[in-house]
Design a protein around this nucleic acid. Structure first.
Length: 547
RNA sequence: GUCCCUGUAGCUCAGUGGAUAGAGCAACUGCCUUCUAAGCAGUGGGUCGUGAGUUCGAAUCUCACCAGGGACGCCA
């Protein structure tokens, strides 16, 4: 990227300035180039002189001037200017800008890819809801976040594995089994009480009836098999809901398999070898207070059964040590916040750098219908499912809406508002830009215009150059999202692209009597379509040809 | 009580320690004989929760306080 080249050149200039005593030998901060808000300040700006001024005891303007004198101006740059109180502003050459249209066209659907990851293997775990019931809207948020992040990381040079961790062991699964068995017996006319900690949603009755319709009464004395059958149905339903949203996984990882394949035993013995387990009150604890945690955590209960924490420990042992992932990213709901620090602590105890695990906490989604807040509770079964949300709002709007908010902020989702405003939804604003472009290219095709020989150097007006400038930001946005793990920058970029395109559309007629200009603008528009479609696809949205 | 997230325009939300704090929706004013008006151009709207501090410079960093949400279990 040109931005990185400029940073390197600037650093060289600074070193050169120190060598020739124009700058004292002070420590050099990391050099970052920013995008100025005001276009009059050029395409990129550096505040290096301002940052150096204090330590150097010099006027930042004088530092800026020295650096500008020393910097080797690359061919892409038209002008390097000093601005008060100590900025260095870089402006791109317009002929270089227009040439990038050709570069985008030849990159095609690959345009925007970067090599940040250099092939590093990343495991991305998300959704991972207990298979005890249907997904609700909060799960949808994590699902969309994860699938988008996976696409961005894969486009940024990482080798990504998307995984769903199935909690098919443990006490909640047990409650599910017992609930289903009760519903099954009830459906067959027997008097069976629901467990108090059971799942009371109507879907449990549906599952029981389905199993009866398919296989009759044969599970009456086989509650375990019934439970497995029921869980398989729930998992299949979850998978199909996610697929509806465009979310898929490379691996569905079973918690049970950790026990069956020795991962749990290996992880636990490694932990005790390292001296971080202790027995007290009949249970086995992770002595996390030794690592600065507030309290110790139980790994094995006094009845001998492992806790969720213990199997998650085994899972992460498997990710890092058995499978050797360099990085692991987990996306958890806000209710798992307290799990983060002990998970990092236990990984550290296993001898793995905790920095290699990144946990994204996706905050709560509150669902509203008008003024009425809908409380979601899986136990009572009062909830709006993810599927219902997608049916009402649509996949594209759903994805765009969820992606537009940073994972850190909790969000209100008003169903009535989302439906009522559907025609004004920003999603259509972006897609409309794509449809307009497609329409122009369709007309060109109908008229048999071949713009392969179009001369992009004819693109010199402000709306044209502004469009090119915005298109060139896609790799920067890709890098930003990949580094911060914040996909919410994508919808904002998409909206910017659409705005600038719509503006161009108003001011610049593409297909006209001027054949040369028509050819050049068709190339520009074709490149803009590549960028818009790419951005939409990264968000998991469709790029409609017409609307 | 401890920990985490949030507090920015009427509403929903962006905002990598830098230049005049932005977008969408809502309100108001204009613009369709020409590739899609699901569009464009413009107007109004702000003690960036409060108060200190660090800095040449703070919405952004630190501390305290206020408000909302979440977590503090041998549940997951």
């Amino acid at each position: 990227m040109i931005r990185d080249e400029l940073a390197i050149l600037l650093e060289k200039a600074a070193i050169e300035a120190q060598r020739s005593n124009l700058l004292p030998p002070i420590a050099m901060p990391e050099i970052v180039l920013e995008r100025p808000q005001n276009p009059e300040h050029g395409d990129y700006a550096s505040t290096l002189p301002l940052k150096l001024a204090r330590a150097a005891r010099m006027d930042p303007l004088i530092i800026a001037q020295s650096l500008v004198n020393l910097i080797q101006r690359p061919k892409e740059i038209e002008r390097i200017a000093v601005a008060s109180p100590g900025f260095i502003n870089f402006s791109l050459r317009s002929d270089w800008l227009t040439a990038q249209v050709e570069a985008i066209l030849s990159a095609g659907a690959q345009y925007g890819n970067i090599d940040l990851g250099k092939g590093a293997r990343v495991q991305l775990e998300f959704v991972s809801v207990n298979p005890t019931g249907p997904l609700h809207v909060g799960h949808g948020r994590g699902a969309i976040l994860g699938s988008t992040l996976a696409d961005v990381l894969a486009s940024s040079g990482y080798e990504v594995v998307k995984e769903y961790y199935i909690n098919d062991a443990g006490s909640q699964m047990d409650a599910f089994y017992r609930s289903l068995y009760a519903r099954y017996q009830q459906a067959l006319g027997r008097d069976a009480p629901m467990p108090t900690e059971g799942y009371f949603g109507d879907y449990m009755i549906d599952i029981a009836n389905e199993i009866i319709a398919e296989e009759g009464e044969r599970f009456l004395d086989k509650p375990e098999e019934l439970g497995e059958r029921g869980a398989a149905k729930v998992i299949a339903a979850i998978a199909s809901d996610l697929e509806l949203l465009g979310v898929t996984f490379d691996e569905w990882f079973s918690e049970q398999s950790l026990f069956e394949q020795g991962q749990y035993d290996k992880a636990m013995s490694l932990l005790s070898e390292k001296g971080y387990t202790v027995e007290k009150e009949g249970a086995v604890w992770f002595s996390s207070t030794a690592l600065g945690e507030d309290k110790d955590n139980v790994l094995v209960r006094s009845d001998g059964s492992p806790t969720y924490f213990a199997s998650d420990l085994a899972y992460h042992y498997n990710k890092f040590i058995e499978r050797g992932f360099e990085r692991v990213i987990d996306i958890w709901g806000a209710d798992h916040q307290g799990h983060v620090s002990r998970m990092k602590a236990v990984i550290g105890a296993l001898g793995i750098d905790p920095e290699r695990l990144q946990v994204i906490i996706s905050q709560m989604v509150t669902l509203k219908r008008g003024d009425a807040i809908i409380r979601a509770s899986k136990r009572t079964g009062e909830m709006i499912t993810l599927r219902e949300l997608v049916d009402e709002v649509g996949v594209d709007a759903c994805r765009f809406f969820f992606l537009s908010r940073s994972a850190d902020s909790q969000m209100d989702f008003d169903l009535e508002l989302a439906k009522r405003q559907s025609a004004d939804n920003p999603v259509y604003y972006v897609q409309y830009a794509h449809a307009r472009i497609s329409s122009i290219l369709r007309l060109a095709e109908e008229r048999g215009i071949d713009f392969g020989g179009g001369d992009v150097s004819l693109l010199t007006s402000d709306p044209e150059l502004a469009l090119i400038r915005k298109m060139l930001q896609l790799p920067e946005v890709m890098e930003l999202v990949a580094m911060t793990l914040e996909p919410h920058h994508l919808p904002y970029y998409a909206t910017d692209m659409a705005t600038i395109f719509h503006n161009f559309y108003e001011k610049c007629r593409v297909i006209s009597d001027d054949r040369a200009l028509t050819g050049a603008r068709l190339k520009l528009v074709a490149a803009a379509r590549i960028v818009l479609a790419r951005t939409l696809h990264l968000m998991g949205m469709s790029a409609p040809e017409q609307m």
